[in-house]
Amino acid sequence: MLKIRFHGRGGQGVKTSSRILGRAAFLDGFIAQDSPIYGAERRGAPVVSFTRISKTPITERGFIFDPDIVIVMDETLLNDWLARPLEGVKKGGAVFVNAVSGFPPPAGHDDKVFITYDLTGMALEIIGKPIISSPAAAAAAKITGLISKSSILEATAEELAELDLKDELLEKNIQLAAEVYDVIPTPAINTQESEPITREVSPLEYEPVTHEEVIHLDISNLGNSALRRTGNWRIFKPIVDPQKCTGCLVCIIYCPDSCITLDENNKAVIDYDNCKGCMICLRECPLRAISSVREVRVYA
C-alpha cells in the first residue's frame, strides 16, 4: 500500500487534491481511500488530507502517521508546530514542496527525496487564483509512479465538475494538471511496508490521569490568540504606501484580526506576525494606499 499525505491551508484545495488522487487510483484499477481532517478554523489554517492506494483491501482509516509520500502545498507549513508535515515520513519516501525555489532537505531528513516546484506561481499564471488542488494531485500522481496521465486528468475533470466549476475554469485546471504531470519526475521510492506503530508506553499511561479535584475547561490567559502567529497563513501580503495613507482608520476598523495600528506619523502599520493576508484592508482603503504582493519565502 502507498500512503500519501497532503498538507496545505484552508482554501488551497487540499481535500480536493486527495480526492482527485484517490479517484485517479480507482480509475487505474487500484483500491483507494481518501479523507480530510480539518478544524473549525478558516481560510489559511492548516488542513491535512490523505489518500491510500492499494492492490489489496485497505484495513486502515483516518490519519496517516507513516506516509510514503508527503505533498506540502505551502512551504510555510514546514515550520508550523501544529502541522508538522514531515513527521513520520518513511525512510526512502518522497516529499514534494510547493515552493518558489529548491532547497536542501531539512536536518534529519536526508534519507528522503525532496522535490520542489512553484505550483502557486503556475496556478496564478494559468487560472489566476492560488488554488492548487489539481496540480498538487497531478504532482502526487506522478511521484507515485502508479497513476496514468489519462486517469489523473479524468479524475480532475470529474472531481472539479462535482464542485460546479465552469467549463473554462475546468479546462484551465486540466491544462494545469497536465503540465505539472509532465514536468514532475518520478523518484525511486524505497519505503518498507511499515510495522504497526507501537510506542513504548507503560500500561498506566493508557489510563486517563486520575484527579481528586475538578478540572475546569477554562482559558484565562487573555489575548493568547496572538501567540498563534498566523502570519504564515498569507499567500498575499498587504503593503501600505505611507505617501498615500492619511491615517483615516478605515483599515483598522475593518481588519478582522486587529492587526493594524497607527505609528507616530499617523500611518497604518501592519502586524505581519499575525496578519493572515485576507486583503480586506486593501478592499476597504478609500485612498487605495494598500497594495498586494505575492508572499515569497524560501525555507532554509
Binding site: P208, H211, V214, L217, D218, S220, L222
Partner: peptide, 25 residues
C-alpha cells in the same frame, strides 16, 4: 477578566481528559 469556558479542543485527547474528569467528579 475575560475567560473562555468550554473552548474547542480538536484531536480527541483533550476532550477525553475533560470527559474523564466529569465522570470522576
Amino acid at each position: 477578566r475575560p475567560v473562555v469556558k468550554g473552548a474547542s479542543v480538536l484531536g480527541g485527547h483533550i476532550y477525553t481528559y475533560f470527559k474523564h474528569n466529569i465522570h470522576e467528579s
